[in-house]
Design a protein around this nucleic acid. Structure first.
Lengths: 200, 200
DNA sequence: CTTTTACTAGAACATGATTCTAGATTAGGA
DNA sequence: TCCTAATCTAGAATCATGTTCTAGTAAAAG
C-alpha cells in the first residue's frame, strides 16, 4: 500500500503556466510547428517538468482542449439556468456562444481548429463523456418546452446543429479573417434565426 | 531560355496514388501521426518522388485539401445551375452537401478536420482565392432571388452560415460517430429549415 | 540520335520528441 | 522537529522522423 500525498501547492500554477504558454505557441505558429522547447522556454519550466505533468506533446494539447471545453460548457449552463422562457433560452444559447468566443478569441480558435488532433483513445473517451453529460443537462432544460408545445418537435439529433450550427460556422469565418464583424456584433441575427427555426 | 517539356503520361497517376495513400494514412492514424515513410510505403513510391511532387509533408496535405475542396465546389455549382427556383436552389445547397459527404466520407472527414494545419502562406492564398471565386459564383446565382423579393434580405455574411451551418455541424457529429443517421438520410429536415430561414 | 528536363532513388543529415537517471522539494506522520 | 515516501524538477542521452542532396533513369522534343 503506497502512501497518498497531496499534490503540492505550486502544482496548479505550473500546470496553468504551461497551458498558457502552449496556447500562445499553438496560436502563434500552429500546433505542429511548435516544439516542446518553445513551450518549455515560454513557460519557464524544464523538459522533465513538462513530461511529468502531461506525458507528451499530445497530452498538453489535450489538456488545453479539455480545459477550454469545460469552461465554455459551464458558462452556458450558468447562463441558461437564469432563463425564464423557451425563447430566452434558445436566444441565450446563441448569444452566450457569441459573447464567449469573442471574449476568448484564442482559446476559441484553438477549440474550433483542433478536432484534427488524433488524441489518444483515453482522451477521446473523456471528451465523449464530457460532451454526453453536457448535452444531457442541456436537453433536460429544453425537454419541457418541447413537451408542452412551445418548441417544434424535431428529430433529437437536429436541435443542436439547427440552433448552434450557424453561429459556429460564422465564428469560423470570423476567426479565419473572412468576415469583419465579431460574433458578438451579429449575434441578434443568429439568435432570431435560431428561435424562428424551432419555435412551434 | 529553358526548353519546356510536357509532364510525362505517368505523372498524374503517381500524384493521385500518393494522394490516395496519404488520405488513407491521415484518416487511419491522423495527420500528425503519419510519417512520410508510411505514405511512401502505402503509395509504392520513393522519398525522392514524394518530395519532387509535393515539396514536403505539408504540401501533400495541402494538395489533398485543395483537390477535395475543388471537387465539392464543382459538384455544387453543377447541381445549382439546374435549379429553376429560389426554393429549389436553397434546398439543393443543403442536399448536395449531404449527398456528397455521405458518398465521400473519408475526404469529407479530412476536409472538415484539417483547418488546423498551418498551411504555408502561398497555399493559404490559393485557398482564399478558390473560396472567394466560388462564393462569388454562388452569390451571383442567388442575387436575383434576393433582389426580386423571393428571399429575405440579410447581412451578406450570414447567408452561408444560416443555410449551410446546420448540415455542416450535423455532418461533424456524424463523422465523429455521435449520431447514427447519415446526412443523406436527414437532409430533408435541414433543407426545410434552411428554406424557412431565408424565404421572404 | 542527342539533348534537355522531368522524374526516381535512397543515403546522409538535422531537428526535435521522448526516455532515463539523478536529485531537489514538499506533505504528513512519529 | 526530524524522517520517509512521494511529488516534482532537471537536462543529458537517445531515438524517430522530416528534409536535403547527389546521382542516376527515362521520357519528350528536335
Amino acid at each position: 500500500m503506497t502512501k497518498q500525498t497531496k499534490p503540492r501547492a505550486t502544482t496548479p500554477a505550473r500546470r496553468a503556466s504551461i497551458l498558457k504558454a502552449a496556447l500562445d505557441c499553438f496560436i502563434g505558429q500552429g500546433v505542429e510547428a511548435t516544439t516542446i522547447d518553445d513551450i518549455r522556454r515560454a513557460s519557464g519550466s524544464s523538459i522533465g517538468s513538462l513530461y511529468h505533468h502531461f506525458g507528451n506533446k499530445e497530452g498538453i494539447a489535450a489538456g488545453l482542449f479539455i480545459d477550454g471545453i469545460q469552461r465554455l460548457n459551464a458558462d452556458l449552463l450558468r447562463k441558461l439556468k437564469r432563463c425564464k422562457s423557451a425563447e430566452q433560452s434558445v436566444r441565450t444559447v446563441v448569444t452566450q456562444y457569441s459573447d464567449w468566443v469573442t471574449a476568448h478569441r484564442d482559446i476559441a480558435r484553438y477549440l474550433l481548429n483542433s478536432r484534427d488532433i488524433a488524441f489518444p483513445p483515453e482522451t477521446k473517451d473523456q471528451l465523449r463523456e464530457i460532451h454526453r453529460s453536457h448535452i444531457t443537462e442541456v436537453f433536460r432544460w429544453f425537454g419541457p418546452y418541447v413537451r408542452d408545445g412551445e418548441m417544434k418537435a424535431l428529430p433529437i439529433d437536429t436541435y443542436v446543429p439547427i440552433i448552434s450550427g450557424p453561429i459556429q460556422d460564422y465564428t469560423r469565418y470570423w476567426l479565419a479573417g473572412q468576415v469583419k464583424e465579431s460574433p458578438a456584433k451579429v449575434k441578434t441575427v443568429f439568435a432570431e434565426a435560431a428561435w424562428n427555426a424551432v419555435r412551434a
